[in-house]
C-alpha cells in the first residue's frame, strides 16, 4: 500500500474580531483553496506521490482543490461536515490510522483540534494568516513537498519531527480546556466572539513555549524566560495591573497589539506540578480564544499529558539533501 497524507482545511473564515481591534489578517476561502491546491501540487516532489485524504468542509474548499489537481490521487473522507471543530477532530482521528503525515491549513485552534486526535502521525500545520503561534507561515507547495518526503519515508520522520508540549486547565467540576501554545484566563464574563480582546483582560495562564516572537501569552512568558516547545516543563503566569505589579514587560499580545503587562508571578511547572487559581468570574481560553465560562471556580493549570509530533520543514529539506530530488 502506498503512502497517504491527510489534509485538513479549516473553512471558518472571518470570525476573528481582532481584525476590528488589532491587526489580524484575513485569508478568504478562495485563497485557502489555492493554498490547498499548492499543498497537493507539492506532493509531486517525490516520484511516487502519496495519496491525499481530504477532510470535507462546509465551504467545499478541499473538494474543489482536489478537482483542480490531476497528478495526485485524492480521496475525500466519507463524512458530512457540520462546520464545527468536531469536523477537524473526526478527520484527525481517521488520519491517525490512515495517514503517514497530516497537513493542516488553519490556525492554532485547528492545529490543536487535530493534535488532540492525530496520535503520533507527523503533523505539519501551515498558517494561512499571520495570527498564530504554532503553524508555520510557508508556501503550500513547500509544505506539501515536506509532507510527501516524510510520508513516503524519503526522510526519516523521527529525525525531522519534535514533540510539541500541550497545556491544559481543569476546573474542579472536571471540565478541561487544552491548548497547544497556551491556556489563559480572562476576566471577561463571556466567550462572546472568542478572541482575547484587551490585554488588561488577561489574568494569567500557562504556556508550553515562551518566546518574545510568539503572539499572546507565550510572548508575555518569553519576555522573562525562554522555553522551547519540546523542552520539558511549562510556565505558569499570574498577571496583575501593570501599575501595581512587581515587574512589567512589553509583549506582543495580539496581532498589532504591543502592551505593557504586569507579572505578579511566573514559574516553571515540572513533573506534574500545577498552578491553581480561584476565579470569581472569568473565561478560560486556549491559544488566544475564549472557550469556557467559569463562575465561582477553582482552575488548575498544568502541562497536558502529551502533545503532537510536529514536522520541522527546514529539517526535512536538510535531511533530504539534494540526492532525493535528482532523477538520475
Amino acid at each position: 500500500m502506498g503512502a497517504h497524507i491527510g489534509l485538513i482545511v479549516n473553512p471558518a473564515a472571518g470570525r476573528d474580531i481582532r481584525r476590528l481591534t488589532g491587526g489580524a489578517s484575513v485569508v478568504d476561502n478562495y485563497a485557502k483553496r489555492r493554498v490547498a491546491e499548492c499543498v497537493l501540487e507539492g506532493l509531486e516532489v517525490v516520484p511516487d506521490p502519496p495519496t491525499a485524504l481530504l477532510m470535507p468542509d462546509t465551504a467545499g474548499i478541499a473538494a474543489s482543490a482536489a478537482e483542480e489537481i490531476s497528478g495526485v490521487e485524492t480521496d475525500l473522507l466519507d463524512c458530512s461536515p457540520d462546520g464545527t471543530a468536531a469536523d477537524t477532530r473526526r478527520a484527525a482521528a481517521r488520519f491517525s490510522e490512515e495517514a503517514d503525515a497530516i497537513v493542516v491549513l488553519g490556525g492554532d485552534g485547528t492545529s490543536r483540534d487535530t493534535a488532540l486526535e492525530c496520535g503520533d502521525v507527523p503533523l505539519l500545520p501551515v498558517s494561512t494568516g499571520t495570527n498564530n503561534v504554532v503553524p508555520t507561515a510557508v508556501d503550500g507547495t513547500v509544505a506539501g513537498a515536506a509532507a510527501a518526503l516524510v510520508a513516503t519515508g524519503a526522510v526519516e520522520a523521527a529525525a525531522v519531527t519534535y514533540r510539541h508540549d500541550m497545556v491544559e486547565a481543569r476546573t474542579k467540576s472536571d471540565e478541561t480546556v487544552t491548548g497547544l501554545a497556551s491556556v489563559e484566563l480572562s476576566n471577561r464574563s463571556f466567550v462572546g466572539t472568542r478572541a482575547m480582546l484587551d490585554p488588561e483582560d488577561l489574568t494569567g495562564g500557562v504556556v508550553s513555549r515562551a518566546n518574545p516572537a510568539d503572539i499572546g501569552l507565550s510572548s508575555v512568558a518569553g519576555a522573562t524566560d525562554s522555553l522551547a516547545p519540546d523542552e520539558p516543563g511549562v510556565i505558569g503566569l499570574r498577571l496583575v495591573d501593570p501599575d501595581t505589579a512587581p515587574r512589567t514587560v512589553r509583549a506582543i499580545v495580539a496581532p498589532g497589539v504591543v502592551a505593557e503587562i504586569g507579572i505578579e508571578e511566573g514559574y516553571r511547572l515540572t513533573d506534574g506540578e500545577s498552578m491553581t487559581v480561584d476565579v470569581e468570574e472569568g473565561v478560560v481560553g486556549a491559544d488566544g480564544e475564549r472557550e469556557l465560562e467559569v463562575v465561582g471556580e477553582t482552575v488548575e493549570f498544568r502541562a497536558a499529558d502529551r502533545g503532537p509530533r510536529l514536522v520541522s520543514i527546514e529539517a526535512v529539506f536538510d535531511a533530504a539533501g539534494t540526492g532525493v530530488f535528482e532523477n538520475g
Binding site: A13, G14, R15, D16, I17, R19, L20, V26, S189, F190, V191, G192, T193, R194, L197
Partner: peptide, 16 residues
C-alpha cells in the same frame, strides 16, 4: 473589516 458571529449568542453580537 467584516466579521461573522454567532447570532444565537447575544454576547457575541453585543461584543462585535
Amino acid at each position: 473589516p467584516g466579521i461573522t458571529v454567532d447570532g444565537m449568542d447575544i454576547t457575541a453580537v453585543n461584543e462585535a
